[in-house]
Design a protein around this nucleic acid. Structure first.
Lengths: 147, 147
DNA sequence: CAATATTACATAGCAAGCTATGTATTGGAG
DNA sequence: CTCCAATACATAGCTTGCTATGTAATATTG
């Protein structure tokens, strides 16, 4: 088949991702949350005191990317980093009270963005889209540059 | 409904986008094409000699982002920029022979990445996913920060 | 137990996205 | 024709992604 931008999964996924990112950023920046901090906060709200390594595994980003993001989050008063007693290499990341207080506002923002993106979708369609995306993730992660 | 990373469209779309971008980059970088140059090239292969403004409209990125990308592409010998005769403000972007020669290789790379991502999908599922993504794009673009 | 390897994180440097703003050319109003 | 607005692009500065490499602490091995 001939290649075309309109039928390219990668092109369109990239397009959607940028649109959703812009939208989310517009909602959370006024609350004092940078776009890159958001995924890290989601996991820390689930389980506070994670190490950098644990966060890297959960987020699927590279370690230096997270280190820089955590530095900005510390600067912005969202987290503190403290050396682990017992293992001096480990930095445990802890949410500040300010960050803990932002949880509901942030959830609402994310749910609003998703709801807008999925307006007109019934529950079955929404589930279907998420299921298809999960399959794509497994395919790409499963072969990790050996394809 | 309670918010969760696993059921968040934005989170998962962002994840897929990064995975696909990494994969494509690994394939095209050795050919001398940077990741950011790829979408611009796709449109220039369709129609050479576009202006920056026309490319910005087609790509859905901001003008300064494209200006920087074109500067890198010029540095890398993929395009030349020439002032339009008749309107001294306009820069027409033209592909170099080198860039024209890369077309098939680039198409193949993109199709490979998409095929890997969609492995195990039949044609109907593939069409369905693309259709759902198109609906998401329309929803998000259609309300453009008025939601 | 000293030397080495491994681990966890930090730093440097680049790409590519963004907003805000500057500059040069063109077009239009008086 | 002159002045001002609009247009097309460039520049500056930030964020967030990446790879490659450095550093300090811990674990392992001969």
């Amino acid at each position: 088949m001939e290649f075309s931008v309109d039928t390219s999964l990668g092109y369109q996924i990239n397009h959607v991702a940028r649109l959703l990112a812009r939208d989310l950023e517009a909602r959370i920046k006024p609350e004092g949350i940078a776009l890159g901090a958001f995924p890290a906060l989601l996991h820390l709200w689930e389980k506070d005191g994670l190490t950098q390594k644990e966060l890297v595994a959960r987020l699927g980003i590279e370690q230096p990317t997270l280190a820089a993001t955590l530095a900005r989050m510390e600067r912005d008063g969202l987290v503190t980093r403290r050396r682990d007693e017992g293992d001096g290499r480990v930095q445990r990341v802890r949410l500040t009270p300010k960050a803990r207080a932002l949880r509901e506002v942030a959830y609402d923002a994310a749910m609003d963005v998703n709801a807008k993106a999925l307006q007109g979708f019934d529950e079955a369609e929404r589930e279907l889209l998420m299921a298809l995306l999960r399959r794509v993730i497994l395919s790409v992660e499963g072969t990790e540059n050996n394809g």
